[in-house]
């Protein structure tokens, strides 16, 4: 499925482009993800996705596969596998910048494909979840692109980061403490402060949505039909 996000940032296009190419900063825009390492254009990490009682952790990599300086267009390919299960998630994120004087229009198009067990909830849930993920990614990216250095990590950034690199250990948790008019969210001065590997409660208001691997889409209509049938039938009612 395809998801689109558009926003404008208060930075000229060349500045915005520089930030877009910074792997660590872009990776940090994925709230709830833990960055395990970055190597040039490629970064490894984990993302935990929660939809009510369903919790799925994906492990994988993401990397820049295209950087067009002239057109200010970058493409990131991300793929991950469920750490417990056989599902996968793949996303191709295409970001394009258009300069408008002191501002830049940013467009983010995400092509998403998911396989595996947890996704047989029908298109409604997946696109709902995927939408919230990309919305939050876009929001964080907007904050990142708008200002120097200080990332907007969103409300779920809790203390006790566990990702790569040292830097500041504490991210101010929650409750939106905006800095300098930036959108509300926790602010951390640490350039490499990775997100906590807490469960990202995608559909909850308290967590910062992250470009988590979207729920795997059931591969094979037969399995989908069977599982929906079983889940509904076996009285998944309390």
């Amino acid at each position: 499925m395809q998801l689109k996000n558009n926003f404008t940032v208060a930075a000229p296009v060349d500045e915005a482009w520089k930030v877009l190419l910074d792997v660590e900063r872009v990776a940090r825009c994925m709230p709830g993800a833990t960055l395990d390492g970055a190597d040039g254009d490629e970064f490894k990490g984990r993302v935990k996705v929660k939809v009510g009682p369903i919790v799925v952790t994906y492990q994988g990599t993401a990397k820049f596969v295209q950087k067009d300086e002239q057109a200010h267009r970058a493409v990131i390919d991300a793929s991950g596998k469920e750490s417990r299960g056989s599902g996968t998630a793949k996303a191709t994120v295409t970001t394009a910048l258009t300069g408008r004087g002191d501002e830049t229009e940013v467009s983010v198009v995400t092509d998403l494909n998911i396989t595996g067990r947890p996704a047989q909830f029908g298109r409604g849930v997946i696109s709902d979840v995927a939408g919230k993920l990309t919305d939050k990614f876009a929001e964080n990216l907007a904050a990142e692109l708008s200002g120097p250095g200080t990332p907007d990590l969103g409300p779920s950034a809790a203390a006790g980061t566990n990702g790569a690199g040292g830097g500041h250990a504490d991210e101010t948790p929650a409750a939106g403490s905006p800095v300098g008019g930036r959108p509300a969210g926790a602010v951390s001065g640490a350039p490499s402060a990775a997100r906590d590997d807490d469960v990202i409660d995608l559909l909850g208001v308290s967590t910062a949505p992250v470009l988590k691997r979207l729920l795997p889409v059931l591969a094979g209509v037969g399995v989908l039909a069977l599982l929906i049938f079983l889940l509904r039938r076996s009285g998944a009612k309390s």
Binding site: I54, R117, S234, G235
Partner: peptide, 8 residues
């Protein structure tokens, strides 16, 4: 049922 189907 969710546990049995290993959805979680």
């Amino acid at each position: 049922p969710m546990l049995a189907l290993r959805l979680t």
